[in-house]
Simulated assay, not measured.
Amino acid sequence: MSYLGGKTAIVTGASAGIGAATAKALARQGVNVVLAARDRSDLDALVAQISEEGGQAVSRVVDVTDLDQMRALAAFTTQTYGSVDILINNAGLMLFSYWSDLAVEDWEKMIDTNIKGYLYGVAAVLPTMLEQGHGQILNMDSVAGHQVDAAAGVYSSTKFFVRAMTESMRKDLGVHHGIRVNTISPGVINTGWADKVTDPQGRKAAQELNKIAIDPADVAAAVVYALDQPENVTVNDLIISPTRQNW
Rank of each mutant, 00 (worst) to 15 (best):
E167F: 03
G82A: 02
V148T: 15
G30M: 08
V233L: 07
Q29F: 04
Q56M: 10
G121N: 11
Y225H: 09
L238Q: 04
R163M: 12
I212T: 13
A14M: 06
F160R: 01
Y225N: 01
M129G: 08
M140E: 03
R38A: 09
Y118W: 03
T243W: 08
S15K: 11
A9D: 12
S142H: 05
T113M: 03
A152Q: 13
N246Y: 13
S97N: 13
Q49S: 15
V31T: 08
D39W: 09
I212D: 07
V104R: 09
G82H: 01
A16V: 13
D44W: 05
V143W: 03
V219E: 01
D141L: 00
S15E: 08
G187A: 10
S41L: 13
I111E: 02
N190Q: 15
W247R: 14
A37M: 12
Y81V: 06
P216C: 04
L93C: 08
A48T: 11
F96Q: 10
M169E: 05
N246S: 14
D218N: 04
A48H: 06
S168A: 15
G13S: 05
K159F: 01
A91W: 07
V148D: 08
S156E: 04
G187L: 10
V148R: 06
H177S: 07
I86M: 08
R244P: 00
Y118S: 07
R203L: 04
Q49G: 04
L35S: 11
G153Q: 11
N90R: 10
G121H: 11
V233G: 02
Q207C: 09
Y98R: 12
H134Y: 15
I137C: 00
D106M: 07
V31H: 05
A36L: 13
Y118M: 12
V34Y: 04
K116S: 05
R38H: 09
L95N: 05
A9G: 11
G5F: 12
L138V: 06
E231V: 06
G13Q: 04
H146P: 00
G82L: 01
I115D: 00
I239F: 02
L209D: 10
L26M: 10
A75P: 03
N232D: 15
Q201Y: 07
K109G: 02
W99Y: 10
V223Y: 02
N182Y: 00
A27C: 03
I179G: 08
W99Q: 11
Q147K: 13
D141M: 01
V84Q: 11
M169S: 06
V224N: 01
I212G: 07
A221N: 12
Q79M: 11
P230T: 09
A221E: 15
T243A: 14
V62T: 15
E53G: 06
D195P: 00
W193T: 02
K211T: 12
D66A: 10
N89D: 12
V143F: 03
A75W: 06
